[in-house]
Design a protein around this nucleic acid. Structure first.
Length: 200
DNA sequence: TGTATGATCGCCT
DNA sequence: GGCGATCATACAG
């Protein structure tokens, strides 16, 4: 059993998937860019929404892997996860930042600002830029409106040189109070679009 | 460069 | 009734 999208097997531990997603291009209705920052969340670790079991909010993490899990954060922002399955139970990867590559004008309009660097540098920001809402929850990632493209030299002109020497950093996750010791935040070392720098 | 705070919703205790 | 897998703004140093 495996669920492979853009060369990534989503029937795998979330921290493996989270690392592999760095460099993958994600588009929503043709708008998006290259993933430069992710975080992994696992069923057996208390910072995860699925740690407590299935609820009306997190049910999509308990469904098939390779789908979206969208939730509202602090009553204001939307956040987008990719659902994994690990030894039969749910897990997820939070998208924390992408490098804007497609649909820049639409992103600027949705975000209400010009600065390219601030368009998608944060989990709430990228959802606003990509137009993600509750309506995008629990949808397959290999069908419209989603599109995932494996990293390939020359696939996107602006990033071709970096793909050849892609260094992925790992560190503690951001904004949580439990299981803070797990180094399950991943980021593209050379990117200027990270939501926060990696220490050391 | 850093710390504090308000906004505002759904779920949990 | 409390608390976030957040963000923008306001201030201090």
């Amino acid at each position: 059993m495996s669920k492979i999208i853009a060369g990534i097997d989503f029937e795998a531990p979330s921290h493996i998937v989270a690392r592999q997603l760095i460099g993958v291009t994600v588009l929503v209705n043709g708008v998006g860019g290259r993933i430069v920052e992710t975080e992994a969340y696992d069923r057996e670790e208390p910072a995860s929404h699925c740690y407590i079991g299935e609820t009306p909010r997190n049910f999509s993490m308990f469904g098939p892997p390779g789908r979206s899990y969208v939730y509202r954060s602090h009553g204001i922002h939307w956040c987008l996860n990719f659902v994994c399955r690990e030894n039969g139970h749910g897990a997820g990867v939070l998208l924390r930042a992408i490098e804007p590559l497609a649909g820049l004008a639409q992103m600027r309009e949705r975000r209400g600002l010009e600065d390219e660097r601030l368009l998608c540098s944060g989990p709430g920001r990228l959802c606003q830029a990509l137009g993600i809402t509750r309506a995008d929850n629990n949808l397959p990632l290999d069908a419209a409106p989603f599109q995932l493209l494996a990293p390939a030299p020359g696939a996107d002109p602006g990033a071709a040189t970096e793909v050849l020497a892609m260094e992925v950093l790992a560190g503690p996750r951001i904004g949580i109070s439990k299981a803070v010791e797990l180094p399950w935040r991943f980021g593209l070392a050379s990117s200027r679009f990270l939501s926060k720098p990696f220490r050391q």
